[in-house]
């Protein structure tokens, strides 16, 4: 009984302290940034409009592994694998329906080649929804984006023209099966 009353008093005071603390905010400035009059600073890792980047050698980074598409929670990425003359896998088409995209960045996390990247450009309003559908030519940029210097084909074991077996990072010369050495 006594304990209950004491608890009640203490609880009442904590509530009053809460009120006091909130009231203190009367004197603290607002955190709101007045967009669009004030443009906020967005860090490079901000998650907005998606791009496809290129290898340092200027070829498409995307190997159309489909991991972005499967990671996408709103299923707004669709692509089809094809293969170039020199053995690279690349997407025959790559489509992102930005009217569905929630900018969650799961595709970027899933991408094993750093091909798909999110940029800080979030201002992509359109009056016609069909303009929100980006094909590969709209997505592809000319540079490496956030990860300069990385090339998936240098770590992959698959041969492409200009990179034979054994020439990737951490690879030994191809085995000579006919060797008689032990």
């Amino acid at each position: 009984m006594i304990k209950g009353i004491l608890d009640l008093i203490r609880n009442t005071f904590t509530q009053l302290i809460t009120l006091k603390m909130v009231l203190h905010h009367t004197f603290s400035p607002p955190d709101t940034v007045q967009y669009p009059e004030q443009m906020p600073y967005l860090p490079p890792r901000y998650r907005a409009r998606i791009i496809l980047t290129r290898d340092p050698d200027g070829e498409e980074r995307c190997v159309s592994c489909n991991l972005c598409a499967v990671a996408c929670p709103v299923d707004c990425i669709v692509l089809q694998k094809t293969e170039s003359e020199d053995g690279r896998w690349y997407p025959e088409f790559f489509r992102i329906n930005f009217s569905r995209c929630v900018m969650c960045g799961m595709c970027e996390e899933a991408c094993p080649t750093y091909a798909i990247q999110l940029t800080p450009d979030f201002e992509m309003c359109e009056y016609d929804r069909s303009n929100m559908v980006y094909e590969k030519e709209h997505l592809l940029i000319d540079g490496c984006g956030k990860y300069p210097g990385y090339s998936f084909w240098n770590v992959s074991g698959k041969t492409i023209s200009g990179k034979d077996k054994g020439e990737a990072e951490n690879e030994a010369e191809p085995v000579d099966v006919r060797s008689l050495m032990p």
Binding site: N66, A69, V70, C72, V74, D75, C76, I77, V78, L79, R95, I96, N97, S99, R100, R129, S130, V133, E135
Partner: peptide, 15 residues
């Protein structure tokens, strides 16, 4: 259960 691309597959034709 994890088929992908449902909302983009025909987006080039119709929204």
């Amino acid at each position: 259960h994890r088929a992908s691309g449902r909302t983009a597959m025909v987006a080039d034709v119709t929204m």
